[in-house]
Design a binder for these strands. Structure first.
Length: 270
DNA sequence: CCGACAACCTGACGGC
DNA sequence: TGCCGTCAGGTTGTCG
């Protein structure tokens, strides 16, 4: 469940439970996810007080007063569950606070990851160092995106999915933003006009903001740490709507680009 | 630089 | 009911 709006929803759910609280225990139930879970995870985090819970791209960041930052990524199926009433075979890491709140990292497919770094080294961490600007931040401008698209023959959808160009966009919101901006997902990046780029930047921001306000999108999993489903999938205008009508009445078409489903309106998007 | 593809894993779903 | 193929929100590496 994890593109930028879903991770933002998780971070906002975790912050009030973790910020200013001491971690009473941090227990990993298995040694690895997509990569090894840091062997000193429990040792470095237990007893530490959380100073901030934030997000960069699709990564959640939990900083402590011991100058460590825990980096987490939810992969495809990862969730952070708050005080879950049940447990299962995919509950990989359990955090318990001094207030006895339990946060369980659950991830059936194990495409997620946990990493630890000194907070001072966070920006230089290999997972984060090459990542592009936040799409809701001040440096993600039409001028910037135009420069990154210049001369590129790759499809614009592929460029949007490239985390080095812009952070946090995934398959759903790439399709949604392109639909909103009336741009065909297969358009070569370098052929976009300045007007089109500006529309795309506005569309990305609008879609992401609306999705965050709705608590993200839920396919089959819960999004919020409290188990509350995100609602934004009800607002999808293109993604997952093959054969259903666009606002213009034309049926949405599904295609495959670089091995991933793409959805667009053949009439509106050019 | 480019795109296609496979790999990493499990689960859900539709068709037969 | 069960088996099988297909698909899924991501990332990373290889190959041509």
């Amino acid at each position: 469940m994890p593109e930028l709006p879903e991770v933002e929803t998780v971070v906002r759910g975790l912050a009030p439970v973790l910020s200013g609280r001491r971690l009473a225990s941090v227990i990993a139930n298995r040694p690895d996810l997509r990569r090894p879970i840091p062997h000193d995870l429990g040792q470095r985090l237990t007893g530490a007080t959380v100073t901030a819970v934030t997000r960069r791209a699709k990564y959640g960041l939990i900083a402590t007063d011991r100058d460590d930052t825990l980096i987490f990524h939810l992969g495809m199926s990862g969730r952070m569950r708050l005080d879950p009433g049940d447990s299962g075979p995919h509950d990989h890491v359990v955090f318990t606070t001094n207030e006895r709140r339990r946060i369980v990292f659950t991830d059936p497919r194990r495409f997620g990851l946990l990493a630890l770094t000194l907070t001072a080294d966070l920006a230089a961490h290999p997972l984060l160092a090459g990542i592009g600007p936040e799409p809701l931040g001040p440096t993600f401008t039409a001028a910037y995106l135009a420069r990154r698209c210049e001369g590129r023959i790759a499809p614009i959808k592929a460029l949007l999915l490239d985390q080095r160009i812009v952070a946090g966009i995934g398959n759903i919101y790439a399709s949604e933003a392109l639909h909103r901006a009336r741009l065909h997902p297969a358009r070569e990046g370098g052929t976009l006009t300045r007007i089109e780029i500006a529309a795309l930047v506005r569309a990305l921001r609008a879609v992401l903001r609306a999705a965050i306000a709705a608590g993200g999108s839920s396919l089959r999993d819960h999004v919020g740490v409290d188990g509350v489903l995100g609602l934004f999938q009800k607002s999808w205008t293109a993604y997952g709507r093959e054969g259903e009508p666009c606002a213009c009445g034309t049926a949405i078409v599904r295609s495959v680009q670089s091995g991933r489903s793409s959805f667009h309106c053949p009439r509106c998007q050019t």
